[in-house]
Design a protein around this nucleic acid. Structure first.
Lengths: 203, 203
DNA sequence: CCTCCTCTAGAACGAACGCTCTATCCAGCG
DNA sequence: CGCTGGATAGAGCGTTCGTTCTAGAGGAGG
């Protein structure tokens, strides 16, 4: 049991289950839930259908929920990297948008938020997925909120602003994908910095 | 030719083509592009498959593009209603979010932005749809921009802020759907009003 | 009357869907 | 050595997909 990857199976040294989750996460990000088939997943993950259903007996929904949690962590890494890049809050926020813009352009405007598409497709129709999505959003808000508090923004303000920061980033990323331009993200960064500045009279 | 609706065909007095577009628009809004089948559309529209392909020989993509344009107009109506509701800019913006929140709750958090889901699903894979989406976003930005100029915000600022207003509304609506709560929208309204206020020293 | 043309109607096609199922492989252990 | 059980492998199930195709309904113009 737990054979893991033994000795560099398949193309990389990562176990079958992990390969399946990663492939699913990337496919959901790019083509959404309905647009991604289990067979396509098993193909891209270099796993067989049998393996997919072995590790995820709950089928497509369970697999998608796990992939959403993976995307959650992925996005959190970027968020933390940006927010931790500077003592100055405004700079930290614009670094976030810059990081997102860079990744988006590098993927030819394909890799937006890892979970948004799936989230929208499954609203009110796949509870397991919905919960994973809700947890991801809460997780990201918590990361931002903590940074805002570190910058001296207090109580209710930090919580609410964290929500708006995440929402605006989401909207800007969507816009950037549609327009194939980094501009919406950069503009969002500047506007968010400006909004946050109104909560701290001066530097 | 142009029989239109003659004498109150089907359930309502609207012609077949229009019924198809409306049904498609609502289905795309709720289940996205891949999750919506042509046969389901023809069923809901009370039209036959033959009629669908008669009016939209370009198939699903052409039909979706037309539905996106329909959703564009629909959202524009709400936007104009909100923005035109008050002389005060801040109040006008929060009215927008209130209208969106009301509609969202009334549909049990199902009817978010009419085009976002389809937009994300088709990024980089369905040019006809992508263009309709891009035009819708540009349209909405133009509506907001005009209102901002009427409020005395000038030049580049109005253009950029209009983009951020739309983006933040989009993100907040997504969040509201996921969280099944009006809060993200109301918060977004307040934060947007606050951001805009920094461009006009006082009332 | 017949002709033409728009629109309606739905059977049928090959492909893909999610999922089930049986069979096999193989490391660990008694 | 055989046994056990996790993991792999993929054929095949019934269903639905987007699309094509032929046939007919119904009104307008000759």
């Amino acid at each position: 049991m737990k054979t893991a990857q033994s000795t560099a199976e398949k193309s990389s040294s990562v176990g079958t289950r992990e390969r399946i989750v990663r492939a699913t996460s990337r496919l959901l990000q790019r083509q959404g839930y309905e647009g991604t088939g289990i067979k396509q997943i098993s193909r891209e993950a270099e796993a067989t259908l049998g393996s997919v259903y072995h590790f995820f007996p709950g089928g497509k929904q369970e697999l998608a929920a796990e992939a959403i949690r993976h995307g959650d962590q992925e996005f959190a890494v970027i968020l933390r990297a940006g927010l931790g890049s500077s003592e100055d809050l405004a700079e930290a926020v614009t670094t976030c948008t810059t990081l997102l813009a860079r990744e988006l352009r590098a993927s030819d405007w394909q890799d937006g938020c890892p979970i948004t598409t799936t989230a929208l497709e499954t609203v009110g129709r796949a509870p397991v997925i919905e919960q994973a999505v809700a947890e991801a959003f809460a997780h990201w808000r918590a990361i931002v909120e903590e940074r805002l508090r570190a910058a001296g923004i207090g109580g209710e303000d930090a919580r609410e602003l964290a929500g708006t920061v995440i929402n605006t980033l989401e909207g800007a990323e969507l816009s950037a994908q549609v327009a194939r331009s980094e501009d919406p993200l950069h503009t969002a960064g500047r506007h968010l910095a400006r909004l946050l500045a109104t909560y701290r009279p001066s530097a």
